[in-house]
Design a protein around this nucleic acid. Structure first.
Lengths: 361, 361
DNA sequence: TTGTATGCGTTATCAC
DNA sequence: GTGATAACGCATACAA
């Protein structure tokens, strides 16, 4: 007895206004000046008397004139637009950087466009890239970098190879996590790696077809190195099998966690290279009847929203991603406007202690 | 005893190549033809002999020429670029639509740019909009629509007012959820609304400053209407207080759930207008010692990733958002290429039964 | 301080 | 089938 389904009234056909196409020449005529003067007014050039300026401004308002940025770009003018180049703007990492960047851009009165560069993009995207005052690369791969022929003059990159890299101190952050576990008294600490070159082939084929996943970033190796160093500095041996490979996905994290917990002498704590892995590990542990954190402590890395959704909530290392996004935009604006600049390029992480860790029992 | 923090090696200064800036004229000269012929070759015009075409193609390859889309746009050429207009590309709803759109665009050999239109955007964004073959508005507000002066010729909008709206059957979807609860035997069913005009003022001020939240969409009212109709059709009265206002946030959802569960005769089931609200309701119930679903069944709407993260996993109504995104792109491409078109505009939802619902006890 | 001439790189139009 | 010419709308450089 299904109720009758009622559709939304739908289209009210709120059509866009017809293109006025008013040019600078018409404004000039209306104001009784030359097109050049109008241009000067638009671009806030100092060499125009207040009187004229006002007359032009009035004419602009009267005709509801708007500059044609295409023409402006072709003629060599500057734009107040920044392009963010990334393949998957919805990934948590990218999303956070993007959010920070968007906020800062708004403050600086710049616009943001997100260019989703695929494996074989049309040249149009390159044009937008050239149109913009600068580009912000988020997690670019090397292929990606080389594939984009027309980067604007100013480029910064977040978390990846490329010019003017911004990012967090992965080694230091991982040390924070390890020292938290060590100071709680853990000695049997397992580690699940992030994306290493070795697991590249495991990436599903249909993903590879659409995107560029060549991952030669430093984050995963740095976190692993910190794990080794911290264990060593604490005078601890790393038992065989205590380092399990994975990529940054939850599925791979679960597989790694299973291997870890199936060891003869399983760890009492796991340091996962990212939150997704950590959540997976918690899930695996719980489904084996282990209580977290009493019987297994878990630390993640990232502090993504999922860290708060999990039960128990996740102890993790926060990356200040939105701050990084904002800093990237500031840097870009500084370069575009020719300001003096001296921004930090490596950001500190912060250990966020929640419910997934405690002393070993 | 902090370990020495080691920074990533940082910049390898992988600079972009210097701009070649090779023009169509140079190619023409090298090929010994006129610029016009080169243009014809580039645009696959039929009126050029194979022989000539090959010569031009070779010249293009030799000079590694690439069209300047800015100039092309100024001259009135067509582009293979679609712009997605949205304010917050990272919201789950937008992200899913975007993902579907991106996939489809790649299939169709179109590029996607995401324009983050803010309250006061530069005109540059409008230019990009004009540069593109079509625009996909995701959850546009009416203000948003009016504010964007330069929409391209072809526009579709997903979930919101605007030309050529695409979206789900909110009424039908809500009926699915209600009938699931009713068929389980629930009679005391509470409802938590989505964003109604009434709660608009509760939106934090700093959010309002940056974004456009005027929400005159039909989704929330439609779901409420379905709730009322289903209750009525089942011969059930709606007790006082069984409809609680909220917006689409988890926080507001928790507040509403608290009110609901504090009633003298609390419901045995809650239908929440979205997953975030549902998750909040589950959390509130559990922290009051109620077990879900045994003592309280909860149904959401959306089927966002969080639906799987929650404990118990969430029964909810799935919106085929990525399909909608893909359909939107197909529609846009069809319009741009002047294909015959007859796409469906309202998509069916799907009830996904998971662990958060059961018979009342 | 204001106006004029010229060019940006491409496509449309319309001759040839 | 091919090519000369004229826009497209603005900014730079320079002249008035």
């Amino acid at each position: 007895m299904a109720l009758k389904t009622c559709h939304t009234p739908a289209s009210e056909n709120l059509r866009a206004e017809s293109k006025p196409k008013v040019t600078i020449a018409e404004v000039a005529q209306k104001a009784g000046v030359s097109p050049m003067t109008v241009s000067n007014v638009i671009n806030n050039k100092p060499n125009v008397r207040p009187h004229m300026r006002q007359r032009v401004l009035d004419a602009i308002a009267a005709t509801s004139y708007r500059v044609n940025p295409v023409a402006r770009a072709l003629a060599g003018g500057k734009s107040r637009m920044l392009s963010v180049i990334t393949q998957q703007p919805h990934l948590p990492y990218v999303a956070e950087v993007l959010t920070g960047a968007a906020h800062e851009a708004q403050k600086q009165n710049y616009d943001l466009v997100v260019l989703m560069f695929g494996r074989r993009s049309q040249s149009d995207l390159a044009a937008i890239s050239r149109l913009s005052a600068g580009a912000l690369l988020i997690q670019p791969s090397r292929e990606n970098l080389l594939g984009i022929a027309d980067l604007p003059e100013h480029v910064v990159s977040v978390d990846g190879p490329g010019p003017r890299p911004l990012g967090v101190d992965n080694y230091g952050g991982a040390c924070q996590a390890m020292q938290h576990l060590l100071s709680l008294g853990h000695t049997r600490i397992g580690f699940i790696t992030g994306l290493q070159a070795a697991v590249y082939d495991q990436t599903p084929k249909h993903v590879l077809e659409n995107y560029d996943y060549t991952y030669d970033h430093k984050d995963a190796p740095e976190r692993l190195r910190a794990y080794r160093d911290c264990m060593k500095a604490a005078g601890l041996q790393i038992p065989h099998g205590y380092i399990q490979d994975s990529d940054y996905s939850r599925a791979a994290g679960e597989r790694a966690a299973k291997r870890l917990l199936s060891l003869k002498d399983p760890p009492t704590a796991i340091f996962a290279s990212c939150d997704a892995i950590a959540i997976g590990a918690i899930h695996v542990a719980q489904s084996r009847g282990l209580s977290v954190p009493q019987q297994l402590s878990v630390v993640g890395f990232d502090d993504f929203p999922v860290a708060l959704q999990s039960h128990p909530t996740l102890t993790t290392v926060r990356q200040p991603l939105s701050e990084i996004g904002a800093a990237a935009v500031r840097l870009l604006v500084a370069m575009a406007e020719d300001w003096p600049q001296q921004e930090p390029q490596v950001f500190p992480t912060e250990l966020v202690v929640r419910e997934s860790t405690c002393r070993p029992t």
